[in-house]
Amino acid sequence: MTELLRIKDLRVYFQARRGLIGTIPVKAIDGVSLTLEKGETLAVVGESGSGKTTLGRAALRLVKPTSGNIFFEGEDISHLPDSSLKKFRRRVQGVFQDPYSSLDAFMSVSQILEEPLAIHDIGSPHERIEMIHQALQDVRLSPVEEMATKYPHMLSGGLRQRVGLARALILRPDFILADEPVSMIDASSRAEILYLMRELQNTYGITFLYITHDIATARHFADRIAVMYAGRIVEIGPSDQIIDEPLHPYTTALIRAIPEPDPANRLRQRPVIPGEPPSATEPPTGCRFHPRCPSAIAGTCKVVDPNLIEVMPGHYAACHLWPRALQE
């Protein structure tokens, strides 16, 4: 496989107001490295505040990294000025969480889909109509002529999200960031959108970065899963392995927190991790998960920041339970 996107030791800090004149850095992403192969889906799973959305936005260069690098097909785009980014922007697209606010209410579906073509000056008016119809067909919004004339308020959440997907597709991108694309859609329709994404991936060879809080959909729709906690990746590896043999106590806790429909659930307490995710302004010392970790090693986890090490082929964890994490 060939590499499409490589993120190296990425840090994104924001300045938050503290008091009247002071500011304090919020460390949204604090040292993340990962590689996306062409044609794969990598899910980034985490809770709110883990930095997963910022990571996705940085991958599209919608936020500027504080330090570290982002390589797209080998070219470092992390510090390019906005004026030089247009070529890159044509090849990477995003689908976002809220299908209600991410579409302009005053634009028809065809206008929404034409906008990226206009920005990048692609096609004659006639060609554009054909491209719009093809994109609508690709996301199964039919009849296409009728759908093209609709306005967002006339469509359900699921249909709007398909318009969002069509808008991302119309430039034939190599890479799509899908940030919680189904979290506002009914559970009964989520799989439909995710299957559609997978099908488009197979047809057009698109690489997906799938940002989600839902490790269960990640298991079924991603090739690999990266678990984020407090601005770091704590575990990354093949989806099946992450679910069946999680290496990091946080991953285990995330998996156990999700109920399956079982009538016996009500008769027992769910194993939970205590407390809440830490603040991004003052993350804990050592391993950031140690204050909530049921397996924390006294004297080590609070002090030493664990490295991400390869425990099994292609399966990495940052945890002192895997002793090599201390040395590397």
């Binding site: 359900s156 699921g158 249909l159 559970a187 009964s188 329709s189 989520r190 799989a191 439909e192 299957y195 839902d214 490790i215 269960a216 959909t217 298991r219 079924h220 679910i243 998996i255 999700i258 399956e260 429909p261």
Partner: peptide, 22 residues
């Protein structure tokens, strides 16, 4: 039955289904 089938299961390889339409 369809609602139950639409839930992605962590403990099984069975892919989640969806209910077409709205």
């Amino acid at each position: 039955r369809k609602l139950l089938d639409s839930i992605p299961r962590l403990g099984s390889n069975e892919a989640p289904q969806f209910i077409p339409g709205a």
